[in-house]
C-alpha cells in the first residue's frame, strides 16, 4: 500500500476506537467475571463460588458440554466435507443448489430451536408422524439423554453446517487440480486422495472452521435453553445462576466456560501451527 509521512500515526488513530471498544466491552468484563468468581458478597479470594457450583450441579454440565461440542463438530465437518466436495465440482444446477444449502444460515438460532421442537416433540410431532407412517413407535425425543443429544446436534448442525461448507469450499478452490490428476495417474483412490491431498492442504481452513464452530459449540445456548436439551450445559448452568443482585456464582460458572473455550482455542492454534510447519 501507499505510505506517506505521519500515515502510521493517523492509521493508529483510526484503529484506536475499534481496539478500545473490545478492550472496554469484552476484555474488562471478562476480567471482572474471573475476578468476581473468586469473591462473594462478603469475602474475597475464596473458591466458595466454585464449590457451590460444582456442589449444586456436579460435573455433568462440563461433561455434557464436551459431548455436545464433539458430536456437533463431528457431524458438521462430515457433512461440510461432503457438501464442499460436491460444490467444488461442476454440475448442473450448482448455483441453485448452493443458494438453497446456504438458506439455514439466515434462520435465527431460536427459530431453528422452535422448528426442531415442532418436529421432534416429546409427544407426537412430525418426526413421530413419520415413524407411525413407517410402522414404528412414537419416541419421546426430549425424554432420554441420547435422543435429546441427537435432536440438539441435528438442529445446531442444520443451521451451522453451511458456514463450515463455505470455508472448506474456499479452501478446496486453492488446491491445484493438477495434484489430483497426478495422484490419479499414480493410482491413488478416492480415500487416499482425500487423506493425502485434500486434508493436509486444507489444514489452515480446517483450523478456521474448527475455531469458529468449536467456540460456538461450547457456547451453545438458545437451542438448549428452548428445551431441546433439558440436561445442564455450562451455558444453561450459567444462565440459571444469573442474578444481578448476587452474580458471583454465575461468574464462577462463566469462568469455567471461558477457561474451556480458551483451552480449546489453544489446541486449535497448536494444530494450525504444526500443520503449517509440515506443509
Amino acid at each position: 500500500m501507499v505510505k506517506w509521512r505521519n500515515d502510521e500515526w493517523i492509521a493508529l488513530l483510526l484503529i484506536l476506537p475499534a481496539v478500545l471498544y473490545v478492550l472496554i466491552l469484552a476484555f474488562i468484563p471478562a476480567l471482572q467475571s474471573v475476578y468476581g468468581s473468586f469473591s462473594t458478597l462478603r469475602a474475597h479470594n475464596t473458591i466458595y463460588n466454585y464449590q457451590f457450583v460444582i456442589g449444586t450441579f456436579g460435573l455433568s454440565p462440563i461433561v455434557n458440554t464436551f459431548i455436545v461440542t464433539a458430536s456437533a463438530l463431528g457431524l458438521q465437518f462430515f457433512i461440510g466435507f461432503v457438501v464442499a466436495s460436491l460444490l467444488s465440482k461442476p454440475f448442473k444446477g450448482r448455483e441453485a443448489f448452493s443458494a438453497i444449502l446456504f438458506l439455514p444460515f439466515g434462520v435465527a438460532t431460536i427459530v431453528t430451536a422452535v422448528i426442531f421442537h415442532d418436529i421432534f416433540s416429546s409427544y407426537g410431532g412430525y418426526a413421530n408422524t413419520m415413524l407411525k407412517l413407517l410402522g414404528g413407535h412414537a419416541i419421546d425425543w426430549t425424554g432420554s439423554f441420547g435422543t435429546s443429544l441427537l435432536i440438539t446436534v441435528l438442529a445446531d448442525s442444520w443451521k451451522n453446517t453451511p458456514i463450515v461448507s463455505l470455508i472448506l469450499l474456499a479452501g478446496m478452490t486453492t488446491i491445484p487440480p493438477d495434484l489430483y490428476s497426478q495422484a490419479m495417474v499414480d493410482g491413488a483412490g478416492t480415500f487416499q486422495r482425500f487423506f493425502r491431498i485434500t486434508l493436509p492442504n486444507l489444514a489452515p481452513f480446517i483450523a478456521i472452521a474448527l475455531m469458529i464452530r468449536g467456540i460456538s459449540e461450547f457456547n451453545i445456548f438458545a437451542i438448549a435453553q428452548d428445551g431441546l436439551f433439558p440436561h445442564p450445559l455450562l451455558t444453561t448452568m450459567t444462565y440459571s445462576l444469573f442474578d444481578i443482585v448476587n452474580p458471583h456464582p454465575s461468574y464462577a460458572s462463566a469462568t469455567i466456560l471461558l477457561a474451556f473455550v480458551l483451552i480449546f482455542a489453544f489446541f486449535v492454534m497448536l494444530y494450525r501451527s504444526r500443520s503449517s510447519k509440515v506443509s
Binding site: 471478562a30 450459567t238 471461558l258 480458551l262
Partner: peptide
C-alpha cells in the same frame, strides 16, 4: 473467543 455469556453478566 470470549463467550457472550461470560461478559454479558458483568
Amino acid at each position: 473467543m470470549i463467550p457472550s455469556l461470560t461478559i454479558a453478566i458483568p
